[in-house]
Design a protein around this nucleic acid. Sequence first.
DNA 1: GATCCACCTTACCATCATGGGAGGGTCAAG
DNA 2: CTTGACCCTCCCATGATGGTAAGGTGGATC
Lengths: 129, 129
Amino acid sequence: MNIGQAARLSGVSSKRIRHYESIGLLQPARRTGANYRSYSERDVHVLRFINRARELGFGIDPIRELLSLWSNRRRSSAAVRSLAARHLEDIDGRIAGLEEVAKTLRTLVKQCQGDDRPDCPILGALEHP
Amino acid sequence: MNIGQAARLSGVSSKRIRHYESIGLLQPARRTGANYRSYSERDVHVLRFINRARELGFGIDPIRELLSLWSNRRRSSAAVRSLAARHLEDIDGRIAGLEEVAKTLRTLVKQCQGDDRPDCPILGALEHP
DNA sequence: GATCCACCTTACCATCATGGGAGGGTCAAG
DNA sequence: CTTGACCCTCCCATGATGGTAAGGTGGATC
């Protein structure tokens, strides 16, 4: 199948597929006589795997490792778990940072009258720490 | 004062100050005879304002608006509040997305044995939706 | 007055993953 | 043979920042 169908079946855009190939995340696709990339069901399977990993927020390099582990029958589940756990910590850290910002913003927004007058604790907080 | 001191006093790196000037977030600084940028206390005050807004996750364009409101004596607090509220919604949305991802990851990590055997529900979940 | 270090300047490249678009080739149906 | 939907490669843009290169400046010390 052509790249467009692989894209539709996998949820990975053609643009992304070409990109993944260019950075070596995917093996270069076989080509037809007209130089069109040609994909198999198996390729779509891999693309779906990548897509789900991206949806879980894994970056490209971790996905490289995931793919390598996935195709390695002698992998240890510990290696996979450790990769995912590290990623989870990263996410949790980002959530914590955003929560803090959200908390501050929520307080300020609540304190602000939101009327026609210029006085505003939000600007006040930005001006004076 | 030179850019380095303005950077130290405001918490905005020299690099960032030059960048903000280049994109028009800051007025071009006065220059000394040697073409060095020269800053006043007032400039540092503005830089601190920008820095705090960045720390609260505001993007550059919203900060442009915040600066404009800040310097406008006839602003309405409603305008500031609306800007902050929109930003807060954005943050809350991002948190929600990350929470969802974290929840999934946490479940998978818990289910994974993390031993020497290859069987791993994390890879399984990536493979089969 | 020479030297040295810390500072300043501009300019370009990298990040991270993706989309957009230009300019052009290919294929199948009408 | 034309049309439209594909496909190709290549380049640019994103957002905000850091890194680095190559060179000028300022003030202190020898």
